[in-house]
């Protein structure tokens, strides 16, 4: 960190700093103009001076006024366009990104890797790899902020948000909670450790709780009674899971939905909201019975049973390299992109 610029440790950081500097230069020029004119006029036209005080030429009143109105409007439109285009560029995470699940609660950060490894307040990521974070909160609103990466995303209870980054520097960077969340808001800090890809893979493999999410999900599938209806052998008329993930599903009320994470989560928490066509709404709500981690595991299990194409996806996505993972398939099926907004009214 220099005196005036934070470290640039992600590919986005440089881009954002460029806009920032451009805006800064424009602002300085404009301030120089405004301050310069005020001071200049103040001196030239102080009462004691003998400057010319005749009436203003007419073109000054209209043409000038209209002129600078349009000039500023154009400048503003240009600035908007530039900033917006950078924003749109980074809106959608790359398809091959590595996913980490983040759960925020007063006043700590919990990270869960695709293979089940959990960490508190420390996020380790491989360098030069797009990382997508799925963010959930267990209580109030928090905000995931890593200044060195120039990313920030609120973590809202009842809503699943997402953000992503690609780290370009090795090292340890500050993670801060940026949305006020109560007493220890200012202590809700952590760190992001960017490692070499090889080191990261080793670290991940060496973790004791290496059992993967999907396997835990498979256990829950039985222990929580899902199998009673959804297992291949069940007599209950309920959808089967193989090949479900990412499919476009017709609903009883005529709409269709894509079986993405959000949809599956909803199916467990509010089964009566989007009832699949051809089934009766008999599935009970698991709201309050399953915690976020369990839902995550069950979803991973369902995903592991295969996607649209029918080919079972690898249960754990490798840290880098473009393996066709489930999320990618989901996006392919849903042109609107990965909208993970379970409570968002849009869909």
């Amino acid at each position: 960190m220099s005196m005036f610029m934070p470290i640039e440790a992600s590919d986005r950081a440089a881009q954002i700093d460029t806009i920032f500097l451009a805006l800064l230069i424009i602002s300085l020029l404009i301030s120089a103009l405004v301050f310069g004119l005020i001071i200049g006029f103040g001196i030239r036209y102080r009462r004691a001076s003998s400057a010319d005080r005749g009436p203003m030429p007419e073109f000054f009143r209209r043409e000038f006024e209209i002129g600078w109105t349009f000039a500023t409007a154009l400048l503003f439109l240009f600035l908007f366009w530039w900033a917006a285009s950078v924003n749109i560029e980074v809106l959608v995470p790359p398809k091959d990104s590595y996913r980490v699940n983040v759960v925020a609660k007063q006043w700590m950060w919990k990270f869960q890797y695709p293979n089940g490894v959990r960490q508190i307040d420390t996020l380790r990521v491989p360098i030069d790899t797009p990382i997508t974070l799925t963010l959930e909160s267990q209580d109030v609103i928090h905000s995931f902020f890593v200044p060195a990466f120039r990313i920030k995303q609120d973590v809202v209870p009842g809503l699943r948000t997402e953000t992503w980054f690609k780290a370009t520097k090795l090292g340890t960077f500050k993670l801060l909670c940026a949305e006020y969340c109560g007493t220890d808001h200012s202590r809700m800090r952590g760190e992001v450790i960017v490692m070499r890809q090889k080191d990261f893979a080793e670290w991940l493999a060496a973790r004791p709780e290496g059992d993967d999410l999907a396997r835990r999900g498979a256990e829950l599938f039985v222990s929580r009674g899902c199998s009673g209806c959804h297992a291949e052998s069940s007599n209950v008329h309920a959808p089967r899971f193989p090949g479900l993930y990412g499919r476009r599903i017709p609903l009883a009320d005529g709409r269709t939905a894509v079986a993405d994470e959000a949809y599956i989560r909803d199916s467990m928490l509010q089964p009566n909201r989007d009832v699949a066509a051809g089934y009766r709404p008999i599935m009970p709500s698991y709201s309050g019975l399953l915690d976020d981690g369990e839902i995550e595991s069950l979803t991973a299990y369902i995903r592991s049973l295969g996607t649209v194409g029918g080919a079972p996806a690898a249960p754990t996505a490798p840290p880098s390299g473009g393996a066709a993972n489930a999320a990618e398939a989901a996006e392919a099926a849903d042109p609107a992109g990965p909208t993970t907004r379970p409570t968002g009214g849009g869909r």
Partner: peptide, 9 residues
């Protein structure tokens, strides 16, 4: 309206 859109049932 928002409540209803988000919880039609």
């Amino acid at each position: 309206a928002i409540g209803r859109i988000e919880n039609p049932a």
